[in-house]
């Protein structure tokens, strides 16, 4: 970890004023300190956000939930409103990382979490995301943990977050503040596909700070599940995960939100699968069919081809488990 100057502003305005091309905000530090130790991120200035407040969870009049950037993953997961209205988010949060890391990690920090691709994490290796134009080591290297959806010829790195998968399914807005004022970015537009510029990971300008994430109002009568599949039972990033939210009328699906983790370069909405499911009978067979649609455009590589089938399994099972709750009267 190189040396840097630590700046500890007391207001959002000062924090934004302190930000530059060669600085980084720090919240819990679980991504930034990790990557600074590896030499992957080497900011000259680290701007601390821990004195900025931004730690409230607030129910808005329009039914949305406004989450402060600094609310820890632990606290968000057990917030009564989250547990009641967005259980899929609570489940996703609790499936991520470990108790200790969740106690540190913040909401904004999790949104800004960076890929776990080992080639990205080693400055000695070519990586288009870390060092544009040097090439992608994973393409011809080991790519078991890498994405099959949303990839480009320049980058196949997986977005690692569980929280973001749930937020993608729920629908949310990222509120940012910069020198030019406040912007609201729809969650689905916040993270960028790698395309020709894998180094650009999000729609955040260099002077901007995430202040809040606002969750869309919950779907009336929805049932949901977050299912995470991985090698060991805990403390591991997803090989495939699915956040499924469904509303039903009798046995017919009236609305569906399906988001995927572990298989894509950003928190991934399976919109084709969602569209195909709406209006259909909620049967296991139908879930398996729409799951196929979600991976129609998958681009598997040498070691990650299994993620296509595993991802389909995650969707089918998450939908089934969610719908089973409905039949057991567990929905709110």
């Amino acid at each position: 970890m190189q040396s840097f100057e630590l700046i500890r502003p007391e207001s959002v305005k000062d924090a934004i004023g302190a930000q530059s091309e060669r600085s980084a905000f720090i919240g819990g530090g679980t991504t930034l300190v990790d990557l600074m130790k590896l030499g992957v991120m080497q900011p000259d200035h680290v701007v601390d956000t821990n004195r900025l407040g931004l730690d409230e969870i607030e129910a808005l009049d329009d039914g949305r939930l406004k989450i402060g950037a600094r609310v820890s993953n632990s606290r968000l997961a057990i917030d009564a409103r989250v547990e009641r209205d967005y259980p899929v988010l609570s489940q996703a949060l609790l499936s991520g990382a470990s108790t200790g890391l969740r106690n540190m990690a913040t909401t904004a920090g999790n949104v800004m979490q960076r890929t776990r691709c080992p080639y990205f994490r080693d400055p000695a290796k070519p990586c288009n995301k870390r060092e544009p134009g040097t090439g992608c080591s994973a393409m011809d290297g080991i790519n078991r943990n890498h994405a099959v959806l949303g990839t480009s010829e320049h980058c196949i790195a997986t977005h690692p977050s569980d929280m973001c998968v749930a937020m993608a399914a729920i629908g949310a807005t990222v509120v940012v503040e910069g020198r030019k004022g406040t912007r609201e970015i729809p969650f689905e537009d916040f993270h960028l596909l790698p395309g020709d510029h894998p180094e650009r990971e999000h729609d955040l300008r260099s002077d901007e700070l995430i202040t809040h994430v606002v969750l869309d109002a919950p779907l009336e009568g929805a049932v949901s599940t977050y299912l995470k599949l991985r090698d060991r039972a805990s403390y591991e990033f997803a090989l495939a995960s699915c956040a499924a939210i469904v509303t039903l009328e009798g046995t017919k699906v009236t609305a569906a939100r399906i988001a995927l983790g572990g298989v894509a370069t950003k928190p991934w909405r399976a919109v084709d699968a969602e569209a195909a499911l709406v209006g259909e009978e909620a049967t296991a067979k139908m879930f398996e069919q729409v799951a196929l649609l979600a991976f129609q455009r998958a681009m598997p590589l040498e070691h990650n081809a299994f993620k296509v089938e595993l991802g389909q399994q995650a969707i089918a099972r998450a939908l089934r488990d969610a719908v089973q709750q409905a039949s057991q009267g567990e929905h709110q």
């Binding site: 776990r116 080992p118 290796k125 080591s137 011809d140 290297g141 080991i142 943990n145 090698d231 060991r232 039972a233 805990s234 403390y235 591991e236 990033f237």
Partner: peptide, 29 residues
């Protein structure tokens, strides 16, 4: 039996030289 493999890619690079990517059993297993 289920998790452990130290992985070298075709260039001989040790890919998972850390405790997040070299998977060992945890409490929940």
């Amino acid at each position: 039996a289920l998790f452990e493999q130290t992985e070298y890619d075709k260039s001989g690079y040790l890919y998972n030289a850390n405790l997040a990517d070299y998977i060992v059993p945890v409490h929940a297993d």
